[in-house]
Amino acid sequence: MKYALYTGCVAKGAGRELMSATVYAAERLGIQIREMKDASCCGAGAIQEDNPLLADALNARTFSLAEEQGLDIMTICGTCQGVMRTAQIKMEHNPAHKERVNAALKRDSGREYQGKVKVKHFYQIVEEDYGLENLVKRVTRKLTGLKVAPFYGCYVLRPHEYSDTKVPDRPDYLEKLIAAVGATPVDYAEKQKCCGFPILMPNKANALQLSGNAMIGALKAGADVIVTPCPLCHLNMDSYQPEIEEMLDRKINMPVLHYPQLIALALGANLDELKMNTHVVLPNEKLLEVVNR
């Protein structure tokens, strides 16, 4: 199993610990990854709004880079995944648009997107290509007793027409993973809602309120930690947690794990290897207890 790893910007910037966990988890699972050092930002929806055709061309370029290597793409960011799949599906449904994108791409970078490459998030690869049952076999540290709140993030669920999630209104892949590593998934109403990250700049209060509501929902449902496949959700909930606590005037102290971190912990990684001490919210008692058992 080999994939071209599309890191996205966060894993190279404010979420470098995501990269560490990804490398660790992939290696232990026996999934080969090759980092795409020549790929650009996916646009994150922002470049799409600035210049829709250019944004699609940027992603078509990324796709063509992977096609050149003959590898499918692995993403580790829910937003990248959603944005890149949207670009693909748009071109798939509208061949004229694809032609237009390719014409521009060819002109400016000499490349062409053929439409062959598959783009999958790490979680899809684990579930669909690798198999959770195989993952279970490699678990060396069962996270028994840890209550984990899944937080999906919008981009992999909606709009439904651009989502690969089978029943996007009732997703269950995070729950399945949580159970596979021996932890207990908790259910709460906000797990499919928006974390608010996209409006952090234009409307910080709303952005933080959204994350706050989600974390309080998880807390009330008894969660010890949150896990998310999207590092932007992580950033909003983790880096801003002190401000959120201040705003809501209550303690939350909720570690927010990246999806590969949960896997890596179950595969035996220690917290340092995962650079978990770079999170703004450090591992809480319960997490330490489970990991150090």
């Binding site: 020549d38 650009s40 055709l53 250019l54 061309a57 791409l105 400016d108 970078s109």
Partner: peptide, 20 residues
């Protein structure tokens, strides 16, 4: 990023993309 020149070339034609 590696091969940034390709991306730069695209952004240099920013307005052409909009027009197209």
């Amino acid at each position: 990023i590696d091969k940034f020149g390709e991306v730069r070339a695209m952004f240099r034609r920013f307005n052409d993309y909009r027009k197209e």
